[in-house]
């Protein structure tokens, strides 16, 4: 397992935007992704979690080739992404976005929407398109009768199925799901999660699953990466992470999960409310103003990642509480 080449790997990936805070203020750099290294292997489901604005979607866009990174490397099947053409990347990595309402063109039929990637990349003859689309619609639980329908005639769950079908028509290896169910009711969410599970088995897919909902991540993911202000602060196999969260931010995240157990009350995560300004991030560990465990060193020096294990057991934490010794012993 550990010898297997990751189907996707990033090394110290960075993405810096320049933004203006006010009309007359000078432009300043904003590091939306600030040195991210991760690996995804075939068949895994990597859950990516973190607060709004921490850089999840920007990272996803880089992985999809939709956003040029400022620095760092993106490897696909062990080769630099620059050695692949757009079609080659699109054939391997496909997105399913957050909002099925705005990401579907309202003036196109469902059949056209799903077929679009085939047309753009000229991957099918005209007479092949319809059977291919119908096949993938069937796989995604969409009745044939929707082929000529328009998005506004479909429910939220059906539209999300269309978004999934559109991603899968390219037969990708890796699907990046950015909040695939957050706009949906629970009864529809469960159907979509079940569909994603079935498709993964059937088509041997790999997922990166971005979600605010930690119960969903715990249910689906094999591995979890926790992101804070542009950096991964902890990575571990799912069971490990939920049983033994190490980074104080991971702990706060898990403490904030409201499981449906009556009488437990709402926990106090002990986190300050202030999400730091990404244009002017705190010195040292960027989490220190909110960290209940912060020490003097945290205000001065940024912690470096402590890595142990490899392959499926890969884990990593970036926090001064864990010196290299402890991490190796653990």
């Amino acid at each position: 397992m550990s010898a297997q080449t990751p189907i996707l790997e990033t090394k110290d990936l960075r993405c810096v935007f320049t933004v203006r805070q006010g009309l007359f203020k000078a432009k300043k750099p904003l590091a939306a992704v600030n040195g991210v290294s991760l690996q995804v292997r075939k068949g895994e489901i990597l859950g990516l979690v973190g607060e709004s604005g921490c850089g999840k979607s920007t990272l996803a866009k880089i992985l999809l080739g939709l956003q040029e990174p400022t620095a760092g490397a993106l490897l696909i099947d062990g080769k630099p992404s620059s050695s692949f053409s757009r079609i080659d990347i699109a054939r391997r990595v496909q997105p399913i976005f957050q909002d099925p309402f705005s990401s579907l063109n309202p003036r196109k039929t469902i059949g056209d929407i799903i077929a679009l990637p085939l047309r753009v990349h000229k991957l099918a003859r005209r007479d092949e398109i319809r059977p291919k689309v119908l096949e993938i619609m069937d796989l995604c639980g969409l009745s044939k009768r929707f082929y000529e329908s328009y998005p506004n005639q479909l429910s939220g769950g059906q539209r999300q199925r269309v978004a999934i079908a559109r991603a899968l028509i390219m037969r990708p290896e890796l699907v990046i799901c950015d909040e695939p169910t957050s706009a949906l009711d629970v009864s529809v969410q469960s159907q979509i999660l079940n569909l994603l599970t079935d498709l993964q088995k059937e088509l041997n897919l790999t997922y990166i699953l971005i979600s605010h909902n930690l119960a969903v991540v715990e249910h689906m993911a094999t591995h979890v990466a926790v992101m804070y202000l542009g950096r991964l602060v902890e990575q571990a196999p799912t069971d490990e992470l939920f049983r033994n969260p190490r980074h104080p931010y991971t702990r706060a995240l898990l403490d904030s999960v409201l499981t449906p157990e009556p009488g437990m009350g709402v926990p106090d995560s002990q986190l300050g409310a202030a999400f730091p300004n990404p244009i002017d991030p705190p010195r040292g560990c960027t989490f220190h103003p909110r960290c209940p465990k912060a020490m003097d060193i945290c205000k001065q020096a940024a912690p470096t990642p402590i890595v142990s294990g490899e392959g499926a057991d890969y884990d990593m934490v970036e926090c001064h509480l864990y010196g290299p010794q402890e991490a190796r012993a653990a």
């Binding site: 629970v186 009864s187 469960s190 159907q191 715990e218 249910h219 689906m220 499981t259």
Partner: peptide, 25 residues
């Protein structure tokens, strides 16, 4: 009952197992 079956419950629902659903509209 249907709503409660739809949500994954840590420690109760097995990873990747099918969740309950409420078909129809």
């Amino acid at each position: 009952q249907g709503l409660l079956r739809c949500i994954p419950i840590p420690g109760k629902t097995a990873r990747g197992a099918h969740l309950g659903s409420i078909p129809g509209m």
